[in-house]
Amino acid sequence: MTVPSATIERKLRRDSKRPVWKEKASPGLQTFKTLFLGLFAIAIIIPILVVVSTSLADDEQLVEAGGYVLWPTHPSLAAYKALLTGPLMFRALGVSLFVTVVGTLIALFVTITMAYATSRKVLFGRPVIIGVLFTLLFAPGLIPSFLMLRQLGLLDSVWSLILPGVFAAFNFVVMRAFFMNIPRELIESAEMDGASDWQILWKIVLPLSKAVVAVVGLFYAVGFWNSFFNALLYINDQNLWPVQIILRNYVIQGSQVAADQLGVGVSAPPQSLKMAVVVIALVPICLLYPFLQRHFTKGVITGAVKG
C-alpha cells in the first residue's frame, strides 16, 4: 500500500513544527508584551529614580515637592559628603563587604560539598537529607541561638554575622537536585580513569554547574548584605555595625538622631541623608549582578549539554 505524498508532507511538517515558545509572536501579542514589559520596567525604575533624585536634591526643592523629588533641579552631593565623612560609614561598608564576601565563600563551600556528597549513592546521604529537610520545617529559636553564640564567645564578633547564615536548606536542595541531573556517565568515566571525589567535583561537576553556583551565590550574597537582624541581636560595638544597621537607624530613629549617634555632621536635608543611605546600601549589590549574569548564561549553555 502506497502512502500519498501529501500525507507524508503533512506528517513531516507536523513533526518538524517548532515548540510554541519558539514560534514568532503575532504583531498584536508582540505589542501587548512590549507595553506590559514597558509598564513593568517603569514601575521599577521610577521608585529607584525618586530615591536617587531625593538624595541629590536641596532643601528648598524638597520642601516644594513635599519630601520626594523625581528629578533634582540643582543636584548636590552634600548628603553623601556628610555620610562618608562620618567615622562609622566607611567601617560599616568594610564590615558589610567582609561579611558578604567571606560569608558567601564559606556558604558556597559548605553547600557545594554537602550537595555533591549527598547526590552520590552513599550510605549516609539519606539521614543528612532528612536532617536538612527537618530544618526547613523547624527553625532554631531566637533564645537558643543567642545562648549558643554567647557560649561560643561570638557576641560582638564579626563571625556572629557570618556563621549563622553559612547554610540554607533551600539552597542545598536546589544544588543537590542540579548535581543529580549531571550525566552519570561523566562521573563513572572519571572514576575509571582514577579520579578522586575531589577531582571529580572541582574538574567535572563544578564546570557544568556554573549556573546553579552563580544563582546560589547570589542568594547568599544578597542575604548577607541585607541582613541586619543578627547585628541587632549580637553586636553592641558600633565599630562592627554593618551598613544595614545604619540604614535602619536613619529610617526608624530619624535622620537627626541617627546623625548625632553616628557622628555625622548634618549639612544636608534629613530626607536627602535618608535616601543617600539607601543608595549606598543598594549600589554594591546592584554592581554585583551584571558580573553574575554573564556566568548565568555560560553556565546554562554548558550545563545543557547532556552526554
Rank of each mutant, 00 (worst) to 15 (best):
V3P: 08
P4D: 13
P4L: 09
S5T: 15
S5N: 13
S5Q: 14
S5R: 14
T7V: 15
I8E: 08
K11W: 13
E23D: 12
K24G: 03
K24Q: 06
A25K: 14
A25W: 09
A25G: 12
G28H: 04
G28R: 09
F32M: 14
K33E: 11
K33N: 10
T34I: 12
T34W: 09
L35H: 01
G38M: 04
G38R: 03
I42L: 13
I44L: 15
I48S: 07
S53G: 05
S53F: 02
T54I: 01
A57K: 05
A57Y: 05
Q61H: 09
Q61A: 12
L62F: 11
L62M: 12
L62Q: 11
E64P: 07
A65Q: 07
G66M: 07
V69K: 02
W71P: 09
L83K: 08
L83G: 08
G86P: 02
P87S: 05
A92F: 03
S96G: 13
V99C: 02
T104H: 03
F109I: 13
M114F: 14
Y116W: 10
S119R: 01
K121C: 05
F124E: 11
G125W: 10
R126P: 05
P127K: 02
P127I: 05
L136Q: 12
F138E: 04
G141S: 06
L142I: 14
I143M: 08
P144M: 03
S145T: 15
F146P: 07
F146W: 10
L149R: 07
L149F: 14
R150L: 10
L152Q: 05
L155C: 03
S157Y: 00
V158N: 08
F167Q: 08
F167S: 09
A168I: 10
A169H: 06
N171I: 10
V174L: 15
V174F: 13
M175D: 01
F179S: 04
F179R: 06
N181M: 12
N181Y: 06
R184L: 14
I187G: 11
S189V: 11
S189R: 12
G194L: 09
G194F: 07
A195T: 03
D197M: 05
L201C: 06
G217Y: 04
L218W: 04
V222S: 10
F228V: 03
L232P: 04
Y234H: 02
Y234F: 10
I235S: 00
N236V: 02
N239H: 11
P242Y: 04
P242M: 05
Q244S: 09
I252A: 07
I252K: 05
G254M: 00
V257P: 02
A259Y: 01
D260E: 12
D260W: 01
G265E: 13
V266D: 02
S267M: 15
A268V: 13
A268T: 13
P269M: 03
Q271D: 12
S272D: 01
K274I: 12
K274P: 03
M275W: 00
M275A: 09
A276K: 06
A276T: 07
I280N: 01
A281Q: 07
A281C: 07
L282Q: 14
V283Y: 09
V283W: 08
P284Q: 09
C286G: 12
L288I: 02
P290S: 10
L292T: 00
Q293L: 12
Q293N: 14
F296R: 02
K298H: 09
T302Y: 00
V305H: 01
